[in-house]
Design a protein around this nucleic acid. Structure first.
Length: 867
RNA sequence: GCCCGGGUGGCGGAAUCGGUAGACGCAAGGGACUUAAAAUCCCUUGAGGGUAACCUCGUGCGAGUUCGAGUCUCGCCCCGGGCACCA
């Protein structure tokens, strides 16, 4: 580089050069893509299929905000990158348009969602086109389209036929004034968000899917790398949601259950005999589930959920009034405040006792709402000494608290000082709080198990109980069956007809879809009848079996059912006689890459996996895991919190796109942080990418107009290989910000070096194409190419040419960098030391001192340790 | 309370096989061009000290391991997101 010559052109804008006009360029290429079918792979004959999926949006009235655009752009950049690498990328898009959000918004405006949603979709389509997504619009779908939900209903029928769907009573939030079911989000401080009435719990018959049957498989596949390459955070969330735990089911029973043990003798039996007095146990048998069978000797009372079927039988006549009142009080609470509201423990004594199978003592049976019917057996053995909730409850009601585990010394010997060391101690020490450590403890007050470490005791106590017929080891999942019923209007009607004689009868497949009628009075009213049931012409239908008058199911299905299979539909949208074509499915599925928000880490992704497993079992699919690769994107942060409607900090992208251009906006979004982590949105930063594109535009203009193609200098050649490597790696790892930074560096180098190598500029444009597709197309054309740049090939690099022949290494003295010297790449330690000893700065720090050690890291640094 | 992320210049962020901290961009200051402004271009920009060559300090806080720590270990603090009585 010659410093005397002006590094940049003196007269900037020659008359023949057009300034970069994003509006015109973007309109031109969006039109061409549509005309030429650039984004439409041949789904039947594509040689290298790559299914690039992104989570389809819910078409809200507000339109897509910047946070949504960030997600779509990042997924699109990846798809375009894969296209340039030679894959036939299928990138479909659609709309998740059923559901309570749309319905509530429609109710607020007084517009039927059936009118509102299509309008929103028009706006969404416009926005998605304006950002330049590589979408195959031939395969757009909407879950509200009868041609789609016909197959959602078909799916329900397949599950029903296979015995994977069943009906049972379950609690919902009920607003007594609006006469409607409320979602948990619609309950604010225990009141209806619309009318302010106190919300109640109501029990309704609802349809469930047996997802719990698949809990083991859903968990096991998470570890199977051949099936699932997923973000670690997402698999972890699924694991937690599945919530596998190992424990024991223990039977607590009335008098006489342990009679045999009296004869057997032994430590525990002695306890049994000596303690088997006091209140008379009831004759009942109650099963509990616990993860701490080792603490059974400390179970001083038992608690049943208020809904537990045995509550009635266990309640003694003198306690009946109080117990009934308590259960009614709990039932009247809404689900939200019961679960997340005040945590003050309340409960009531049933009057009955059961016998602790370990100690033989009679313990009282209580009812309390901190025990949930949905988990385990709906009953617990309360061990107040070693469970915080039981401790709190025991304190409040004056129930006995017994220590059965004492702390042991810390396993790390360095830290085993002080009190923990002389364990087991304090077998009699009173508990100020529950001692819940389930690893570092030994049993006390537990008969023959005294002194046994907790982990071992879990097994031993379980085996002992089992030998006495009072328990067995058991695995439990936290996962519940999936309730798909929604007592709402805006969803696909569940295709079932109720007949007096034949009960629930599936709608015959030939009669699908069961159309959601367009009704004016879709809003819930005081009649207490579901909106659909008010329409007799729809409600009453002949029973498919006997032809007598039957009634339709008036519930619709959960939106998560719509979205649990949409990716199966995309490749087959043109077939109206099958949900997904077997040949197409075999070619395109499972999904190659799926990108979406981690807010769907559990429900949507888990339900999709479940549905896929069922369809595979039924012979409809050749795979059982739907998404081979999944990556969760980060979120855009604005004013310190995630951009979302609930935070009220959304920014509309349209004005930015209009002002700066879609490509600049895409570049900015991809540059502001790592895609999987998100970043801060502040509009000052957007001028950077715009300036960058302007510079590239000028560079191309100069290369073309001046017909110059200079050979690459050595420095530029090295930079070229480094850049291709960095950009490629960044794209593959979704670290787009570093890819863009590398491109900026390359451009800075080219400008500084005054280099106009035609091939290199073409490569630059190619590497820019995933981020700035319209801009890249236009410049590709300016550079003299005819077809789309997305038919061209991604550049490659030579690893050997990414490094210079000589390298600058740091020279440290005692770990502090004192100087730098240039040595040949891969120089021997001797040569490096010799070079460093020439250096004055190094000498200053080593002179007169003994060099005790030399650390040499080739091509990196040299460290003299002096004493 | 529990589970995940994350704390690096004025700001967004680079650098994670332990090896030259601050790439790239924004903002700011100075200069060139211009009647002027915008745009563009050039220079400076972690803090402190020094005329300078240079020196000292510096990646949330406190310890530790190491020739060497943003990176590893232990103990804390703060911010963001998610889950919530799961026995």
């Amino acid at each position: 580089m010659n410093p005397s010559k002006s590094p940049v052109k003196q007269n900037p804008a020659p008359t023949h050069e057009l300034p970069y006009q994003p509006d015109a360029v973007e309109a031109k290429w969006q039109a061409r893509w549509a005309e030429r079918g650039t984004n439409e792979p041949d789904l039947d004959s594509a040689p290298r299929p790559f299914y690039n999926l992104m989570m389809f949006p819910y078409p809200s009235a507000e339109g897509l905000h910047v946070g949504n655009m960030f997600a779509f752009t990042g997924a699109d950049a990846y798809g375009r990158f894969k296209r340039l690498q030679g894959f036939d990328v299928f990138e479909p898009i659609g709309f998740d348009a059923f559901g309570i959000h749309s319905e509530n918004y429609a109710i607020k405006l007084g517009i039927n969602p059936a009118e509102l949603i299509p309008r929103n979709i028009v706006n969404f389509r416009r926005q998605l086109k304006s950002i330049g997504g590589m979408f195959d619009w031939r395969h757009e779908l909407s879950t509200t389209d009868p041609a789609y939900y016909k197959w959602t209903q078909w799916l329900f029928l397949q599950l029903l036929k296979a015995g994977k769907a069943y009906k049972k009573a379950a609690a919902v939030n009920w607003c007594p004034r609006d006469q409607t079911v409320l979602a948990n989000e619609q309950v604010i401080d225990g009141r209806c968000e619309r009318c302010g009435t106190v919300v109640e719990q109501r029990t309704l018959e609802q349809w469930f899917f047996r997802i719990t049957e698949y809990a083991d498989r859903l968990l096991a596949d998470l570890d199977d790398k051949s099936k699932m390459d997923w973000s670690e955070s997402t698999t972890l969330a699924q694991r937690n949601w599945l919530g596998r735990s190992e424990g024991a089911e223990i039977v607590f029973s009335g008098a006489g259950a342990l009679r045999a043990d009296g004869q057997r003798g032994g430590g525990a039996a002695d306890v049994t005999l000596s303690a088997a007095k006091g209140p008379k146990p009831s004759g009942a048998e109650i099963k509990v589930y616990t993860t701490r069978p080792d603490t059974v000797f400390g179970a001083t009372f038992m608690v049943l959920a208020p809904e537990h079927p045995q509550v009635r039988a266990l309640t003694t006549p003198d306690r009946k009034v109080e117990v009934d009142a308590y259960c009614r009080m709990v039932a009247a609470k809404d689900l939200v405040s019961r679960k997340v509201g005040e945590r003050e423990k309340t409960g009531v004594f049933t009057g009955s006792y059961v016998q602790n199978p370990a100690t033989g003592k009679s313990i009282p049976v209580w009812v309390a709402d901190y025990v949930l019917m949905e988990y385990g057996t709906g009953a617990i053995m309360a061990v107040p000494g070693h469970d915080e909730r039981d401790f709190e409850f025991a304190r409040r009601y004056g129930l006995p608290i017994v220590r059965v585990v004492a702390p042991t010394s810390h396993p790390d010997p360095e830290r085993s000082e002080g009190e923990g060391a002389e364990a087991p101690k304090g077998a009699e020490a009173p508990l100020e709080a529950a001692f819940v450590d389930n690893v570092n403890g030994v049993l006390v007050n537990s008969g023959q198990f005294d002194g046994m470490p907790v982990p071992e005791a879990k097994q031993a106590v379980t085996r002992w109980l089992e030998s006495r017929g009072a328990g067995r080891s058991q695995v439990h999942f936290r996962l519940h069956d999936w309730t798909i019923s929604r007592q709402r209007y805006w969803g696909p009607p569940i295709p079932v007809i109720y007949c007096e004689d034949h009960g629930p009868v599936p709608v015959p497949e030939k009669d699908l879809p069961v159309l959601l009628p367009l009704i004016e009075d879709f809003q819930p009213d005081n009649s207490g009848i579901s909106p659909l049931a008010r329409h007799e012409e729809w409600y009453y239908v002949p029973c498919p079996v006997c032809g007598k008058r039957g009634r339709r199911e008036t519930d619709v299905s959960d939106t998560f059912l719509d979205s649990s299979w949409y990716f199966l539909r995309y490749p087959s949208t043109e077939f109206d006689d099958r949900p997904f074509d077997p040949t197409r499915t075999r070619k395109w599925l499972p999904v190659t890459s799926y990108i979406g928000g981690n807010e769907h880490a559990v429900l949507h992704l888990l339900y999709s996996r479940f549905i896929t497993m069922v369809l595979q079992e039924l012979g409809y699919l050749h795979f059982d895991e739907p998404f081979r690769k999944f990556r969760a994107h980060g979120h855009i942060v604005k004013d310190g919190s995630k951009m979302s409607k609930t935070h009220g900090n959304v920014v509309v992208p349209d004005e930015y796109i209009a002002r700066w251009g879609a490509d600049t906006f895409r570049m900015y979004l991809m540059f502001l942080g790592p895609f999987q982590e998100g970043g801060d949105f502040r509009d000052e930063g957007i001028s950077g990418p715009r300036r960058f594109l302007d510079k590239v535009w000028t560079l191309v203009g100069e290369a073309v107009s001046e017909q110059r193609s200079s050979p690459l200098s050595h420095a530029v050649e090295i930079k070229r290989h480094q850049t291709v490597k960095k950009v490629t790696d960044g794209l593959e790892e979704l670290r787009y910000n570093t890819s863009i930074a590398a491109l900026m560096e390359l451009v800075n180098t080219l400008r500084a070096e005054n280099s106009w190598n035609q091939q290199l500029i073409e490569e630059l444009i190619l590497m820019l194409a995933p981020f700035a597709p319209h801009f890249a197309e236009e410049n590709w054309e300016r550079l003299g190419h005819d077809g789309s740049i997305f038919r061209a090939a991604w550049p490659s690099w030579d690893e050997r040419l990414t490094v210079e022949a000589s390298v600058e290494i740091a020279v440290q003295v005692n770990g502090k960098t004192r100087s730098k010297v240039t040595v040949p790449r891969g120089a021997e330690q001797g040569a490096a030391v010799a070079a460093a000893q020439e250096d004055a700065a190094v000498r200053r720090f080593t002179e007169g001192k003994e060099v005790r050690k030399v650390v040499y890291v080739p091509n990196r640094l040299l460290n003299f340790v002096v004493g």
